[in-house]
Structure formats: C-alpha cells, structure tokens
Design a binder for these strands. Structure first.
Lengths: 226, 226
DNA sequence: GACAATTCGTGAGTGTGCTCATATATTTGG
DNA sequence: CCAAATATATGAGCACACTCACGAATTGTC
C-alpha cells in the first residue's frame, strides 16, 4: 500500500477532477461536505420529520461515514439549529432591505420582522420545533447550546435595539426603556410558542394576536410607560 | 413451582406484612412503586442532574427492574414533568388558600401565583429545565407530551380566568378580554424562560420584571385596552 | 379452594446518537 | 520528490432510552 502511494494520489488527482473541484483541496472539500450534510438533513427532516431521521441516514444520503457528520455538527439538534440561525438572519435582512419600511412606524417594522421569521419557519415547521426548543434554553445547565444561541440572541437584540433607536432616540425615552429589547425577546418567544400551537388556517390567530399586541405594546412604550 | 403456588402466596403474605402494607394488594403496591420511582428520581436528579441520571440508576435505587419504570412513566422526561405538574398545582393551592389575598387586587394575586411557582422551581432548578422545555411544546408534532401538558395548561388557564372574574366580572370587561388568560399564558412562559436564564442574586431581575410588568399589564387590562 | 382471566414486573434485546482509535488524505519542510 | 507533520474521514463500539415476549403474582368466578 505504501509503495502505491504516489501512484495512487496521482490517479486520484485525475479521477477526482470531475467532482471535488480542481482548486484548493482541503478547504474546498470541507465546504462541499458541509453543504451535502445540510442538504441531506433538510431533505430528510422535511420528508420524514426530525425524530424519524437518523444520523446514519443523513450520512448515507450525504455519502459520508456516520462519524463525519459529527465532525461538522456537534449534535443532531445542532443541524436543525443551523436552520434556525438562517431564519433569524434572513428576517433581519428582509426588514433592513425593505425600502417601504425605511420610515415606517416602529410597530410595522417589528411586525414585518416577526412575520418574516414566522414565514420562514412555516416552510420548515415539520422539524424546526426541535431546534427551537433547544434555542430557548441558552443558559440552562442542561444542553450544550448555550453559546451558540446566546450569540444568536445577542445579534437579534442588537437589531431590535437599532429599530427602536431609529424610531425614538435614546434620550427621548423613559428611564426603563433599555429594557425594551429584553421585553421584546420574551414577547417573541411567547409568540413562537403560540405559533407552534396555532392550528388555525394559515396561523391567522397568531398574526391577529401579533398585530393587536404590537400596537398596544408600542403605544405603551411611546407613552413612556416603559 | 405451580404446586407451591398457594403455599408461596401465604408465605409471602406474612413476609410482606413488613413493607408493602397489609391491605389492598395490587393498588397498594402500585402506589408504593410509583412513590419509590418518584423519590429515587428526585434524589438522583438533584444530586447528579437530569442528564447524568440514567433510567437504570433510577430503577436500581427504586429496587425494581428497568422496564418497570416505563410501566409508570412513558419517558424519562415524563418523570421530570411530574414535578412540573406538582409545581402548578401547588402554586394554585397556595394562592387559593391565602386569606390575605382573598380581596387583594388582581395584580397581587397574579404576582403571588407566579412567585409561588418560581419558588417551587428554584428548589428543583437543577433539572426542572428539561421538563419545562418539553411542557412548552404541547401540540408540536415532536414529543409525546401533547396531551398531558395540554391538560395542565387548561387547568392553569381556568384558574387564571377565575382570578380575573373575581376582580372584574365578565359583563364589565372589554370585548377582547376572553383573550386575557391566553395572553397571560404567553406572558408566563416568557417569564419562565427569562427566569431560567436569570443569573442575578436570588433571581431579582425576574422578580423586578414580574412586579413592574404585572402592574402595567393589569392596569392596561382594567382600562379596557384588552 | 381451584381454575381462568387479568394485571404487571422482568431483563434481555433493539435502535439511537455520539465517541474514539485508527487509517488515509493533504500539506509542509527540506 | 520524499518524509514528517497535520488534518480529517472512517466505522466499530459504547451507553443510553425505550420495547416486548414472557412468566409470576393477583383478582374474579364457581
């Protein structure tokens, strides 16, 4: 085997030109494998659901060994959490890039933000619950997701803070307003849980609740109650 | 062995008089075993934490076979969920039985309710998170707890509805007030999640937030905004 | 009391997520 | 170009939560 080494690698170099791209070997291959895992997982989660999807199946579909999955994601939940991260990022981008919202009142921005998040989640409802649930317990002694979801929460809160700042600068606000993003975070979690359990057509109940509660909440905020 | 049957049961009747109580056999024994499981689980959860406690260890400590545990609780999480149920029941009882609260304003009752819940949870914080998290996703396609926690939620909402009714009868309230317990449910979940992540001394942050937000919320409600 | 019917404890067995020593592939240094 | 050093894919193996076919114990019936 050792004697064949050089020959082998040359052969492979040729043979592989078809798939793992000609250029930067290792890094390139890593990206490729990661993409394959994500793709395979998404596919299986959506067809079979989260629990019925085994890591072995993900590995097989991604054409790698089972252990390899765990070189890329610490746990199975971590794979699902990946989609949750995308959800937050995508929603923030949507709000930021919508020109119509540029000068809209705060409650509309927040509605758009949450609405966008829920829309994304709807496409993945079949399995996203599992990731969600884990993201909810950042500092809990159980579960290894503390760091990653803490980070996510931080990014999210920062963005909300921005939106509030745009609508009413810090110096015009009440003494407790620094608390507002925290309150919104709790509110958002509540909405998510409500949404998960909302069986009305197109999640109308959740949207109605969103609209009404945001209006009340923001006007409360603007009157300096908070 | 079959020939010894009668003899054996007589012997056992005597031998057992020490532990599994003299009277009603089966029902008695079931209660006994269930109690032993709960006791063993509580003990292990508190010393070792939830994850580090195996079902095998629980069974061993309760002096039963491993499979038996699952005749009493569907899953390991279910055992922890049991403590969560106790928490809700105990908190409702506390509020109901406190004479000082009899004619107190709504916000005080609600504060007492939630405060009592959090106090109970504090004693079990080491592991309660796991149960909590599962209780949060009642109708989610994942997880088998839908029915039990739906029931719990229903009982809880009924109680909150009672409290509200005492404070302001239905006919005096706004058209959307039937929604109020739902809102409180979301609020409560938010508080729980906040509490789980609150690392301030004695969870002061959570309590402060509770106090302030309940006052604002209830006065909103009383002004007919809801 | 004896037999049948029923309930329930038992523990070996199963499939799972995840780990770890090893083999193999890639990069680096000379 | 080779060899040492490094990175990483591999899959047998592990511990765990949970299942199930079985037999023993209890209850119901005459």
């Amino acid at each position: 085997m050792a004697t064949k080494k050089t020959v082998k690698s040359v052969t492979k170099k040729r043979a592989r030109a078809a798939k793992p791209r000609p250029s930067g070997r290792r890094a390139q291959n890593k990206l490729d494998i990661r993409a394959r895992i994500v793709r395979a997982a998404l596919d299986l989660f959506q067809t079979k659901g989260f629990d019925a999807t085994t890591t072995k199946a993900i590995a097989r579909k991604a054409r790698i060994a089972e252990g390899t999955v765990f070189n890329y994601f610490k746990t199975k939940d971590d794979i699902a959490l990946h989609f949750f991260e995308q959800e937050v990022d995508q929603a923030m981008a949507t709000v930021r890039e919508n020109p119509r919202l540029r000068n809209a009142p705060l409650e509309e921005k927040l509605f758009a933000l949450v609405h966008s998040q829920l829309e994304y989640l709807a496409r993945h409802e079949r399995f996203i619950g599992a990731a969600l649930i884990h993201a909810l317990k950042p500092a809990s002694p159980l579960g290894p997701f503390s760091h990653r979801s803490q980070e996510l929460r931080h990014r999210y809160l920062g963005f909300v803070e921005e939106l509030i700042e745009e609508s009413s600068p810090k110096h015009e606000r009440g003494p407790l307003s620094f608390f507002a993003p925290e309150v919104f975070w709790i509110y958002y979690l509540g909405v998510l849980l409500y949404w998960l359990n909302d069986s009305s057509e197109g999640k109308q109940n959740t949207l109605a609740f969103l609209d009404r509660s945001l209006n009340v909440g923001v006007s409360m905020f603007k009157r300096g109650w908070l």
